[in-house]
Design a protein around this nucleic acid. Sequence first.
DNA 1: CCTGATCCTGACCGTTTGGTCAATAATCCG
DNA 2: CGGATTATTGACCAAACGGTCAGGATCAGG
Lengths: 205, 205
Amino acid sequence: MTETSMPQMTRIQQKNRELILNGALEAFSANGLRGATIDQIARAAGLSKPNVLYYFGSKDEIHKALLTTLLEMWLAPMRQIDPKGEPLAEVLRYVQAKLAMSQDYPRESRLFAHEILQGAPHLTEILGGDLRQIVDRTVAVLEGWMDRGLLARVEPRHLIFSIWSMTQHYADFETQVRAVLGDGRDPVAEGAAFLDDLYRKLLTP
Amino acid sequence: MTETSMPQMTRIQQKNRELILNGALEAFSANGLRGATIDQIARAAGLSKPNVLYYFGSKDEIHKALLTTLLEMWLAPMRQIDPKGEPLAEVLRYVQAKLAMSQDYPRESRLFAHEILQGAPHLTEILGGDLRQIVDRTVAVLEGWMDRGLLARVEPRHLIFSIWSMTQHYADFETQVRAVLGDGRDPVAEGAAFLDDLYRKLLTP
DNA sequence: CCTGATCCTGACCGTTTGGTCAATAATCCG
DNA sequence: CGGATTATTGACCAAACGGTCAGGATCAGG
């Protein structure tokens, strides 16, 4: 959400660009790229529509800027897996970190879900580059652990998918989860316990 | 996709309503409720726009009819879990059936994903009723098995979530999956093996 | 205080969208 | 066949949408 502060920007630019990106996150995460309107974004940002378009040339440009800004944050937990750490603990810590992000940043989670449902038009470049790279690194680490018998052998990429899908599920499908579980329960806390159990059983050698 | 054939409908009504629902599935699954236009639906159905609106009064009505029609099919695999069967085999069969559905009916899967990302405006009624009931039944069956020590004890509802999220992931997030796995691989076949392994380890008492 | 650059907005424009309607064509049935 | 019902469409409408623009307000620096 905090924009990478470019140096040659006035205070006003910094403040308003951030207001706009914040409003855009609200609108895009709720309605998707096509569903969200510039008016919605402007209202959420507390600015006029032409003023929004003064800072970003088009709706698409806002969307792109937002995704670029947020992707780094979204991948951060995976970067923190430590090849020198205790294997099972490292994976479990990653799972919990990803789950916490889905809980703390549901809008961001939904934003990415929407983007990917559309076929990731804006993300494909990054998906093929940066993301691929960080995933490859993580796969190598996991395979190293499995080779040394420190972790049960499973297909590493599918292990990663399973973590992504289940943790995001709690944010993206919150409605469904709530409808099924009923009120008065804490889906994410229960999910944390379930996932800990699951990956412990799956990965203990 | 096949409409529940109401009796007092002419052949033309039956045919055209089905054409429309089919076109709507194409449009809604690709672009969501707000993103899809009646024109798109009409084109996909091979009918004129006013003619589409002759059969369904509004875009929302088409959407609602489509969800209602498809929900039954979507829940069918869960209904087939047999309380008298061998527990682990029953669960594994359900997992594979759900995965096959994500592969065979990706449009339907995406349709539901879109709907739920919007907060399930049209589904909430059904989510609180029919869905709740079938889930409750399945939970009871699972708990029975766990009580008798035939299945490892886990929170049954979260077990169900995990199945839903991971199987749907292969359809909804197909782009992401393909980008990470690279070409020349069969994500679903690999997923089937991974999931079989996972649930076997998780649920074997 | 002045001046140039930055910031902001009301009014406006062309297009798309959901939806209507009167008129015409096809179909059904006695 | 013939009349009534059903099916279909081109033309149209109001609202919403993405985006532009000229001109005025505000601000920073000398």
